[in-house]
Design a protein around this nucleic acid. Sequence first.
DNA 1: TTGTATGCGTTATCAC
DNA 2: GTGATAACGCATACAA
Lengths: 330, 330
Amino acid sequence: MSTIQDVARLAGVSVATVSRVLNNSPSVTAETKDLVNETIKKLNYQPNLLGRNLRRSQTKMILVLLPNISNPFYAGIVKGIEDVAHKNGYNVMLCNTDSDVSRERIYMDLLRNRLSDGVIFMAPEVNKEELTEIGKLYPVVQCCEYKEGASVSHVSIDNFSAAYKATRHLIGLGHKRIGFLGCQNTFISTIQRENGYKKALADHDIPFDQTLVKYGDYGFTSGVRAGKQFMAMKERPTALFAISDMMAIGAIKSAKEEGLRIPEDLAVVGFDNISFAAMYDPMLTTISQPKYDLGCAAMDLVLRRIRGELDQPEDLFLEHEFIIRESTVK
Amino acid sequence: MSTIQDVARLAGVSVATVSRVLNNSPSVTAETKDLVNETIKKLNYQPNLLGRNLRRSQTKMILVLLPNISNPFYAGIVKGIEDVAHKNGYNVMLCNTDSDVSRERIYMDLLRNRLSDGVIFMAPEVNKEELTEIGKLYPVVQCCEYKEGASVSHVSIDNFSAAYKATRHLIGLGHKRIGFLGCQNTFISTIQRENGYKKALADHDIPFDQTLVKYGDYGFTSGVRAGKQFMAMKERPTALFAISDMMAIGAIKSAKEEGLRIPEDLAVVGFDNISFAAMYDPMLTTISQPKYDLGCAAMDLVLRRIRGELDQPEDLFLEHEFIIRESTVK
DNA sequence: TTGTATGCGTTATCAC
DNA sequence: GTGATAACGCATACAA
């Protein structure tokens, strides 16, 4: 493993000159530049970024914390983050938190320990105080899910109006008994989606019925369970709005097992437009978040913060899209 | 941002002592230890790992290169890798390669630049020479997919016998015209799965028919396309073995659209047991790789190599499991 | 245009 | 048991 010293010695120049060539400083003759580059090749020299990073006190590395990589929803977002990062000379490292606070803190330490230049939270578990605190010291951005009240930038869609639109779609199809499949967590998106559902009902003179509301954990199995509960009701719903595609698909599965036809006997709307939504039978009506753009915007915010162009936390809202497929309209 | 110097000064000790406390060296009095720890807390001091890493010339960081994180197959493997890594004081960073060699090389540079202590390839794109070369210099392990002939450790299942088992299952159900949905890449697993299919046919006196072989890219859409081609045949197959669950599901989708019943009119076997396999309608018969264990084993190999306990590349084969579900047996 | 010298924050070797 | 101090590999201010 050769160092910059070895290159300097063999080329007969100083380490400063080699360093200049490495960072292609303009103030170096073409000949010496060639000479140095040759020597670098000859020695198969690779700069040790540990030294460079310490000296520059930056790593060109961005942390992305996800609850779990297996959720296909995150794939598109990560792509956006990566594209913007790479375009700006940054690398991204994805980290599974398993929705575990302690795991999240370990990764936040990487930031405090200067092993990363910034972090993007996909679904922060730490409370808003802790988030605000680290956000003051380092470049931190929340993407999609976010803690309201934390003084930290975030980018997301307008979940309230998305849920409103989904519910209104079902109402427009003539449904009166519309089930809601949500989650019992403190994410603002969750709450806003439930609020959007309720508001749409109210605006169309459909009385809210608490028995039509069930909760899951975003996952397939919880969707199946909730679906069974809905099917077991004396007066079961004729339509269903689930705040995740996975839960929507789970509910459809259990409805089909009961012999119900989708959408004739039960119309279903999901949320997220995961790739599987268009593969399922029936194809799922859902709300599509601009995943790629959300990722790009989040990474942009981090970069602006790193560069000191952002003195105030910024809240960005991107447009969503409502996609009508077989699960609501034949 | 306080440094070890600040702590030393405020505590009235030397940086050496502070460093000893940080690395809990035994040779330090309980009182000075307490004193230092108090000062650390008072200053809210966080050791700068950039300095430590340079000094120790290690990062406690492992790179995991995946073709794309959206493939649910990788989730379980990554979990295994992470668990073993964390247990040993290592962090893992996941990196999307998009099956792009140049992207892969960028991440390999992180290894050469000492920003990572080792790397696990999930599906190497670089050729075996390049792989061998970097494997000689650094701790490198291949997981699941691997380049044969590269002198680099790997861990995987026995793809030949898995494919053999899948095909034999279909034969046992009475099928004679069994389609094969593979891929045209150079991965050894791909080739072995096709060979296993052929061998099973031969062993049961079913002549191999090239028209019953189609190729895709592991993805859903390519499965749909191949499915349509199969359905369009004069004498279409009554069973299908796809080397990925996504392709299997795609093929089922197009078969169902043609009005075929699964498994009565077409029995289908997939490969990988991704989480969707059990969610789909019908639930998919498939081969389950021991994802978690594969990840653990791969990380173990990296660690042993880092510790110098591995002087020879090692090839590990783990057991797989054949899971029979609705798509082949009602 | 190039070289010298210093320091980034830490660990570890050597004294005491 | 503790303290000076020299590295680790690199970038850069300053000098020449």
